[in-house]
Design a protein around this nucleic acid. Structure first.
Lengths: 164, 164
DNA sequence: GTTTGACTTGGAGTCGGCTCCAAGATGTAT
DNA sequence: ATACATCTTGGAGCCGACTCCAAGTCAAAC
């Protein structure tokens, strides 16, 4: 059987990314130029769908489109992942994400506490107030989040109410 | 001893949010109007710093400023967290974040795999391809990310190389 | 007393990421 | 053939979140 292909509409449906946005991604070269049929209509294959889903997934993590290029390169062209620069970028993105996860986890804890009306178990782990270790890294703007920032827990839950 | 206060510059330094941005947050009422000294200069207290840090923290999780209002309400005015609508909002944000975390965790796994040149252990848990359960919820735009989307793992690692 | 520095204000400009539109080509149904 | 749907293109417009600017105030330093 022939390889399954999709219209842009189907691609949009499958990925949850709008047709307009898919075209936009192509325009900015986040997606390779899609093949066209004789009439000029775009044709997508399953790999293209996967690529769009990858973008969607990264997008949901808050990654800016430009930052996705190395990831997409790594997926599309595995060999390129061996170029050290790319590996470094991946690594630092990884670090960012790990930090993001811990921020998110704290927000979840925070919300849970608010929802349950309980108190925080503690103050949340400290990690030194080295906000300004001044090796300002050009490529990465998202500073690691210092867990100390969550001290509003105590700040507010203390003045809260009904501590049982 | 008198309560410690801070200038906007100090607030900016402590929170990592620029002076301009702090003023901007005040302008859009994400922050309450700061008290002024006789000369009109803003004065911040430790609670204000905490609030700004909360915003910073939420921001790092990719939350839009508007979405933060309920969180800030919940921290600032604990009692208001008992209004059901607010609780619902908190709950759905919580859900979003949990989804985000799982997306992020997958990206981390993905990167780790790419970095280690290993294979994925599997396909990542399925969770049904119900992409379009059409109860499109007005308040929440970020669909839960379907882990299936990560199938590009196999798509690409298969065509990869040196499977040992 | 004028220069310096830290601030104030309102408003304009920028940037990323879409989102919408008009004009036009093609395909299929009646 | 005429309508309707589905696509194409380039470009304009929009929104969120800043970021920058000019003009002005005030206080202390020289």
């Amino acid at each position: 059987m022939a390889e399954q292909t999709f219209t842009i509409k189907q691609a949009a449906e499958q990925t949850g990314i709008s047709e307009d946005t898919i075209r936009f991604y192509e325009k900015i070269l986040l997606l390779p130029r899609a093949e066209r049929k004789e009439n000029g209509h775009r044709v997508y294959r399953i790999e293209d769908i996967h690529r769009i889903k990858l973008i969607s997934c990264l997008k949901k993590t808050g990654m800016p489109l430009e930052a996705m290029r190395p990831f997409l390169a790594a997926s599309a062209d595995f060999a390129s992942a061996e170029y050290p620069e790319l590996v470094d970028q991946l690594r630092s993105h990884r670090d960012n994400i790990v930090n993001q996860i811990s921020s998110l986890q704290q927000i979840v804890d925070f919300v849970d506490i608010k929802l349950k009306e309980g108190r925080p178990r503690q103050e949340c782990s400290d990690q030194s107030q080295s906000e300004d270790l001044k090796e300002h890294n050009e490529k990465e703007k998202t500073k690691p989040i210092s867990v100390v920032e969550m001290s509003y827990f105590s700040a507010y839950t203390k003045m809260g109410m009904k501590t049982p």
